[in-house]
Amino acid sequence: MSSPPRGLSAHAAPLRLAGVTCRHGRLTAVDRVDLDLAPGEHLAITGTNGSGKSTLLRAILGLHRETSGLIEVGGARAGGTADWARRRSEVAWVPQRQTAGRFPLLLSELLASGGHVERSVRAAGELGVGDLLDRPLGTLSGGQLQRAYLARALGQVAAGAGLVLADEPTAALDFAGQEQVAAVLAELPVTVVVVTHDRAMVEACGRVAEMAAGRLREIA
């Protein structure tokens, strides 16, 4: 186990999964997954397309209905609506398929939705999308949108989220962007789960697991 280079945030939350199974109808996308992450640990998840990585992250956020098993963030399970609302405020999410949305939303509005406008806007500047604040998300490129969602997640961390779930956060980025984002995630003083196919990102994480046909197996 490794601890992150910077001091640990007081918010850093442990993540515990036990026997988590997710179905899409008759398909078992995630199959009896167990995982224990201490506060501040960073885990990279690799694995072939369709092996269930995104579904697993969405289940932690309560966005996947057909889920069974135990999911604890910060030692707490989620049952009712209020629990899930708290869970989602404790977990920052960089979705794999960032939506450009059906309806116009300005980049500034997206950044504000993370709960800490100042930090998100500063992060947007650092990530090179700071001058696009008044643009509708639908007019951003894939890479710009990905940076925008990452900036939002950094705002969520500043607002108190103790766990970051990043789903292929560098997939649409140029080489420089991949390195930059890997460095930004590595420095986060909270617990991080990052799905990635990027070698540099994997190497920056203390723990590595591989997902295959819904099963999660730790490999480093």
Binding site: R88, T99, R102, F103, P104, L105, E109, S113
Partner: peptide, 19 residues
């Protein structure tokens, strides 16, 4: 704020504290 997020994307709204 809540309307803008919900009309844009339901899951983003869910993850932004919108009821």
């Amino acid at each position: 704020r809540d309307l803008a997020l919900l009309l844009h994307d339901r899951e983003l709204a869910l993850c932004s504290g919108v009821a």
